[in-house]
Design a protein around this nucleic acid. Sequence first.
RNA 1: CGGGGCGUGGCUCAGUCCGGCUAGAGCGCACGGUUCGGGUCCGUGAGGUCGGCGGUUCAAAUCCGCCCGCCCCGACCA
Length: 477
Amino acid sequence: MADQRLPSRQENFAEWYNQIVLRAELADYAPVRGCMVVRPYGWALWENIQSALDRRFKATGHVNAAFPLFIPMSFLEREKAHVEGFSPELAVVTVGGGEELQEPLVVRPTSETIIGHMYAKWIKSYRDLPVLINLWNSVVRWELRTKLFLRTTEFYWQEGHTAHATAEEAEAETRQMLDIYADFAIKEAAVPVVRGRKSESERFAGAQRSYTIEAMMGDKRALQAGTSHNLGDNFARAFEIRYLDQENSLQYCCTTSWGLSTRFVGAIIMVHGDDKGLILPPRLAPHQIVIVPIFRNETERVEVEQALKGIEAQMSEFRCRVDWREGLTPGYKFNDWEMRGVPLRIEVGPKDVADNTVALSRRDEPGRSGKQIVSQEGLAKAVGDLLDEIQESLYQRALAFQEANTHDPKDYDAFKEVVKDGWAHSWWCGEGECEAAIKEDTKATVRCIPLEQPGGKGQCIRCAKSAEERAMFGRAY
RNA sequence: CGGGGCGUGGCUCAGUCCGGCUAGAGCGCACGGUUCGGGUCCGUGAGGUCGGCGGUUCAAAUCCGCCCGCCCCGACCA
């Protein structure tokens, strides 16, 4: 039926995205402007993202803690660039318990300042370092234009905050966390990313250096999918985070912060989804497998149910559910679960009961070519292999897409064409003036200066001045 | 905040220009039956302060005024 179909990605990518989020029941609009409710299916996906990241954080020595939602306004004001960057988007509480507050409280837009305050209290000696804390929480930024998952007034994320003795250690931590994000994106989410440094204008408010992983969405726009900041001693000086070194002399710490948010859910949707709906990477999918039983009458139903006992037992190592919903045809269920992005479907009907088989349908390859009949014997192995194959193929497909749409334009005219519908990987002089002019001309921005550089020198794509680095340009979310 | 559009059952909308019986349809939902290997079909039913307030009128979803809210497009951003 026509109105059950999603708009195609081609005709209206933005609407396709909205519809998927709502219909797959990932999230819904909240009664508060710009806020969303993350529904159980969406939250299950986020929980899988959380555990994949949390594992990596713990493995590198980080520990979790909780910090308050409210931050004294004066804290924000202690780091100049920080307050300038965030003041336009702060939510501020001025009344508590019916009384005007002596000092307004800011609902945290991020926790660097209150972390700084506490670290100053806790860190006295080089023996206290490094401090490696991560927070799983939500933050509030009063955004003007919001979009489910990609930019909401309140969003869920993790923010890591570390303090180190030396600038070198802080830089190493910043880079390590960037690599962890990239590893997570590639291995778990099957999302190819470009690791790079942010330009000065896109740097985090108060950071010395910001790094990012940038991913290309299905409409060829770029999305900052995770960031890692080397804060240098900016916050250490603002909050007096100091320690005595081995020589008994007082030193400022160097701090870092790094974050990845529910925005990443949006990245997964926009990188992998197709015109039938979501496609979730097996390693993060809330349901890796859905089983659809097929029968025409009570006798067949009982037979299928019986066969499913053995099949389900084999599926115990996977996140698997059986769709016993009544009154819906198998065809309806196929479409429904495809829309929800379940990577693998198992169909079990009378023919399978008779032949001791099942039908396997992979989500990333719809139609007959993605469907195969296999024996119930050794099904777990077959399914496990297939899920691995889907995971890999999703990554390869997305990588090929990103590469096919990343160009090396010969001159500025070609550059302007290219960034209308893709990325340009071009020499850049590094001047903010040039960056602003490019944005003015094309709406494209410097997404990052990739860590992997070709070496040598070139000429800036716009001003032709000598350039030492190549940057990635594109239109961004 | 500037420009454009829209508020009518849960959703998408018709009706509004040109006021007039009990406010409609499709989808969804509930119940019964029928179907079931790619979005079944039939029947029955529940569900609406027509965004709000005020005005004009014998009579307002419809005309007038004010207000509220939402969406899209532009300046900030994980």
